[in-house]
Computed example of a mutant assay.
Amino acid sequence: MKHFSELTASAERIVDAGEALLQRLGYNGFSYEDVAQMVGIRKPSVHHHFASKTELGVVVAQRYTHRFRQSLLHIEGSQAQAPERLKAYAELFEATFAQGRRLCVCGMLGAESDALPAELSTEVRRFFEVNLSWLTEVFRAGQGSGTLSARVPAEEAARAVLAALEGAMLVGRGLQSEFGPRRVMEVLLLSFAA
Rank of each mutant, 00 (worst) to 15 (best):
F97G: 02
E55F: 14
G107W: 07
A98S: 10
T65S: 13
H74V: 00
A82F: 02
P83R: 04
E94W: 02
G100T: 10
E76P: 01
V58R: 15
R69L: 09
L92H: 02
A88R: 05
G107N: 03
T54R: 14
L109S: 09
S78T: 15
A95Q: 13
R85D: 03
F93W: 12
A80D: 09
A95C: 00
R67H: 12
L109M: 15
E91T: 13
V60W: 09
I75T: 00
P83V: 08
P83C: 04
A61H: 14
L56I: 15
R69S: 12
R85G: 03
L72V: 01
H74L: 04
A98R: 08
G77W: 07
E55V: 15
R102C: 12
L86V: 00
Q79T: 03
L109D: 00
V60H: 10
F93S: 11
E84I: 00
A61R: 13
M108Q: 15
L103E: 11
A90Y: 04
L86P: 03
E91C: 07
F97C: 01
Q62W: 07
A61P: 15
A98H: 06
I75R: 00
L56P: 14
Y64R: 09
T65H: 01
E94Y: 00
L73Q: 07
F68Q: 12
T65R: 12
A98T: 10
A80S: 15
L103D: 07
V105G: 08
E84R: 14
Q81F: 09
